[in-house]
Design a protein around this nucleic acid. Structure first.
Lengths: 128, 128
DNA sequence: AACAATAATGATAATTGTTACTATTATTAT
DNA sequence: ATAATAATAGTAACAATTATCATTATTGTT
């Protein structure tokens, strides 16, 4: 990583993101990093989340519910958004490369990839 | 539509959305409606876009590129976002209902639907 | 270990996209 | 025409995010 120096704050952000499956927003990352670094700034959180997402170390999820969410697992995978509680959950399914082929049919551009967001009712909301 | 009255401004917004394939942002809708209604307000545009999207008369697209976009065609269909120019293009492919079945495997919640956004290089950016 | 180069920070201001408020105007049913 | 009420324009407020900048931390070099 040319021109990038280590920082305790960035490491704390990575550590927190890797410790949770909750797909937190920048605000939630901030709240949690502040437990160990009480005077970290929200700007630092945003700056590092952007840096890490640009580097491909984390994933940014735009679910259309106000703020972006982040995922410490950078490997492409699929997500589910609960229509009821807004929770975002990882889905354990294989990459659906074949849909890129479907999309490419009759399209003059080049398909490089896709993002999919499934929605419905999550397990917790189903049983309560 | 209970409790909803006609308005020239709302009709102009619908007319503009149905006249374009460009998936405009609220700001772009505003700019274009102002050609015929020079003192329409941006708040009116937002209010009506939200109303129409809630009623299912138009589609709201959240592509993660700053502002939401809108589509005068409310029938569910798929979109492509150009990594280079940011243009959003309709894809003419069939609904991929089968991916909901894939997603449901091993998931304890209920899958009700999905949104997919393909990305890559659009035809115009490819040839220039 | 001190030093120099420069990346990162905290604090805060600024920006952007969007929503809320309110007095006035437009639509619609009677 | 009238009355009821939805919609408007204009503006203020808001939330999420980015920019600015003086200070601090990291890192490679002597």
């Amino acid at each position: 990583m040319a021109g990038v120096k280590f920082s305790r704050q960035r490491q704390a952000i990575i550590d927190y993101l890797c410790s949770t499956k909750e797909h937190p927003t920048a605000e939630t990352v901030y709240t949690n990093v502040r437990i160990n670094y009480p005077n970290v700034s929200l700007g630092t959180v945003y700056r590092n989340l952007n840096l890490l997402a640009d580097e491909g170390e984390i994933l940014r999820l735009t679910c259309g519910d106000g703020s972006d969410r982040f995922d410490g697992n950078p490997k492409p995978h699929y997500h589910f958004l609960c229509n009821n509680c807004g929770r975002v959950i990882d889905l354990d399914i294989e990459p659906m490369n074949h849909i890129d082929v479907l999309a490419a049919a009759g399209f003059d551009g080049t398909i490089e990839g896709h993002t999919v967001l499934f929605n419905g009712t999550c397990p917790k909301c189903k049983t309560s």
